[in-house]
């Protein structure tokens, strides 16, 4: 495990983790503020937290109701 850890340049991997966090946080904030969404809110919380990029994207595309 140590060899794997030391062989990864964390400075280049960090941005990916940070981007994912931003996406998840924005998704959660907009979910918290949203009045009408498709499906129960707790389900979307789980999907956003566990689904990496795809979870947040799925929420933005399917979950939000204010298409226009």
């Amino acid at each position: 495990m140590d060899t794997i850890n030391s062989s990864i340049p964390w400075s280049l991997i960090m941005p990916i983790i940070v981007l994912q966090l931003i996406l998840a946080v924005v998704g959660l904030v907009s979910l918290y503020k949203a009045e009408a969404i498709r499906g129960p809110k707790w389900l979307w919380v789980i999907i956003i937290l566990c689904g990496n990029i795809l979870g947040s994207v799925a929420y933005f595309i399917i979950g939000r109701k204010d298409a226009s």
């Binding site: 996406l23 924005v26 990029i53 994207v57 933005f60």
Partner: peptide, 17 residues
């Protein structure tokens, strides 16, 4: 308001990286 300016570029950036 629909956060499209945020998540569409972000997803493309992540795909690229």
């Amino acid at each position: 308001r629909s956060f499209k300016w945020l998540w569409v570029p972000l997803v493309f950036l992540m795909l690229g990286i």
